[in-house]
C-alpha cells in the first residue's frame, strides 16, 4: 500500500482536536459546561484528540524515515 493510513488519519485528528480545544479555550463560560457535569470537556478532550493525532503522525513519519533509509 502506497498510502499510509496513519498520515491522513493523524492529520484529521490533529485538526479536529485543535478545533475543539481552541473552542474550549475561547468558550470557557462555566454555564456552558453544566451539562457535562461542570467539566470543560472541549478543552480536555480536544487535547486528548490532538495528542492522539500527533502520535499517529509521528508513527507515519517514523515509518517514512525508516523506508528512506532502506
Amino acid at each position: 500500500m502506497q498510502l499510509d493510513i496513519r498520515l491522513p488519519m493523524g492529520l484529521l485528528f490533529v485538526l479536529e482536536g485543535l478545533i475543539i480545544l481552541l473552542f474550549g479555550i475561547t468558550h470557557s463560560n462555566p454555564a456552558m459546561y453544566v451539562k457535562s457535569d461542570n467539566i470543560n470537556i472541549n478543552l480536555w478532550w480536544g487535547l486528548v484528540i490532538t495528542i492522539f493525532g500527533l502520535f499517529l503522525l509521528l508513527m507515519a513519519w517514523n515509518k517514512m524515515r525508516y523506508e528512506k533509509m532502506k
Binding site: I20, M32, N42
Partner: peptide, 8 residues
C-alpha cells in the same frame, strides 16, 4: 455534550 464535543 456542549457545542464542540456535540459536533464530534
Amino acid at each position: 455534550f456542549p457545542a464542540g464535543m456535540l459536533g464530534l
